[in-house]
Design a protein around this nucleic acid. Structure first.
Lengths: 147, 147
DNA sequence: ATGAGATCAAGAATTATTCTAAATAAGGAA
DNA sequence: TTCCTTATTTAGAATAATTCTTGATCTCAT
């Protein structure tokens, strides 16, 4: 009886275009609701609570589709599974070596991340990913752990 | 009859310390001789030419040991296999989207790579990895490919 | 030479991700 | 609506990078 009946809609964002299916909506909402940079597996677990029949392959498909459309970002820190986040501002990622949390680190308002680097003449940068590791503010202020 | 007979020596570098065994020497030389950021598999192929009996597991072990010791760096661009390089200067990596080449991009002499980022107050950065994608100078100057 | 500990080799095991094929769902045209 | 075409989903197999395991081998200090 209301607009909720329209489960489909088409989104035009960034480079791509895609249909917001039920599954993609669920996956996207999972990312929006808990912004802790989950892996595909973690997204899958959370998505299943909302839509028990969803499959892991679909979660991968959805994340991939949305990443290509530019709606979510893939985050690679360290060598483990790719993580995902819906933060579209230019930002880097900081992995705390102690607690494992992944923090977003925004690009300063007027800054240019490539400026510090001696780029080869004529190269064009389409994409830049920055991964930092260290101690987050909380862990850095804690005394050294005996574990 | 000469010093070459001493195949063992101990290196103290950066954070770690390790024995330069025959295998590690070969793996390290492979990295020094062709600085094209090979994957572990590629290192293995090249190492086998010099030491046919070397095993893939050993190549992984050697790369790991040397990475921990700080003698080589692990390079993660995109989602594929980790690459390795013996360049110890602070530098970023640039993957050409067309030719697939990986270029080293040095940090500018006095620059600070974290300066562009709004680091959370109190965080300490131990490690920073920058991966860029785009077109290298050569490919950027070429007309668009029809493939 | 001997013993302790490090390193190596071979292959099995793990894990993230991609692929395949068949079933289902969606949007447009008649 | 009903039919048609195409996109999407699903489940499970396949792939690929990496790690683990175990026993053999090597190195160094005694």
């Amino acid at each position: 009886m209301n607009h909720e009946d329209h489960q489909e809609e088409t989104l035009h964002v960034g480079s791509g275009e895609f249909r917001m299916t039920k599954q993609r909506r669920v996956v996207y909402d999972v990312l929006l609701d808990q912004r802790d940079h989950p892996t595909a597996q973690e997204v899958y677990s959370r998505a299943k609570r909302r839509m028990p029949g969803i499959s892991l392959a679909t979660v991968y498909n959805c994340l991939d589709t949305m990443a290509q459309a530019g709606v979510v970002k893939q985050v690679n820190v360290a060598r483990d599974a790719t993580r995902f986040c819906p933060n579209l501002r230019p930002h880097a990622h900081f992995l705390c070596a102690r607690c494992g949390e992944v923090l977003d680190v925004d690009l300063k308002p007027t800054a240019d991340a490539t400026l510090a680097w001696a780029m080869p003449e004529g190269a064009s940068v389409e994409h830049l990913e920055v991964a930092m590791r260290g101690l987050c503010p909380t862990c850095a202020s804690q005394p050294a752990q005996l574990v």
